[in-house]
Amino acid sequence: MAHLRETSDKALKLLRTLPRVQIGNLRPNPNSKQNDKRGRAQHGGDKHGAGNKGSGQRQNFMRLGYETGNQPFYLRFPYEPYYKGHHLKRQYPPISLLQLQVLIDTNRIDISQPIDISTLCNSGLLKLKPAEMEYGFQLTDDGLDNFQAKINIEVQHASEAVIAAIEKNGGVIRTAYYDPRSLHMLANPKKWFEKGVPIPSRMLPPQDAVDYYTDPKNRGYLANPEAISQDRLVLAQKYGYQLPKIEEDSAYEMLTTAKDPRQVFYGLEPGWLINIVDKTIIKRKQ
């Protein structure tokens, strides 16, 4: 046991002479030192990671869908004319009756005036892009049961249930066609008026749209007004509601306001020049 005591004393004496273990005198971790030069020959110097053949060696960029030898996925299947004629079709962004009701309840739309594309675009929440083949708004029947507003609205497409919902509350609805130039004016009237150009006439609908807009069932703006009055009664009987008499309404003047087929804005005629700075309207001499 004495020699053990001597050994431990010797070890402790040795340990006292050694410096303290700290970060300055530790060996670095293996592989932690990065060589600033590339290896020679086969140690990373021959091909620099680019391999022997193929797109890595030749630094190509394989195109999308390429499957290196397989028949690509996007070429395996037969043709189907999904998009046939898509560039000739007109688009109508939808507005639901629920959305319209909320716009009215939050006072973004003034229902004491007739509602058209300008009114909807001026709310700031609905956009119309005529450059993307959008030819106006279509009114859809979501929220049809909760709709209770007496409005005079002009949209570009509406189903029969929507027409019934609006007329049941004593309102009036019209479907109307606008040519692309008129759509640009209606989507942003201020921008058009700042150009200093007189208001042009509205064009007539193309051949495939004439049938829709001359039909009184669709409340087309080219239809016979007497046939429209007749169809209001027919629709009321079909859906089983009592048609309110708009002739006895206090807002009869507003409800019967309608644009001429050549007119773009309510109250403004083609040929008039709107001066925004001076707030004047320049008309033609009679």
Partner: peptide, 10 residues
Amino acid sequence: TVKAVLKRFK
């Protein structure tokens, strides 16, 4: 646009 995609898919 890859036209082969529009001919086969929607």
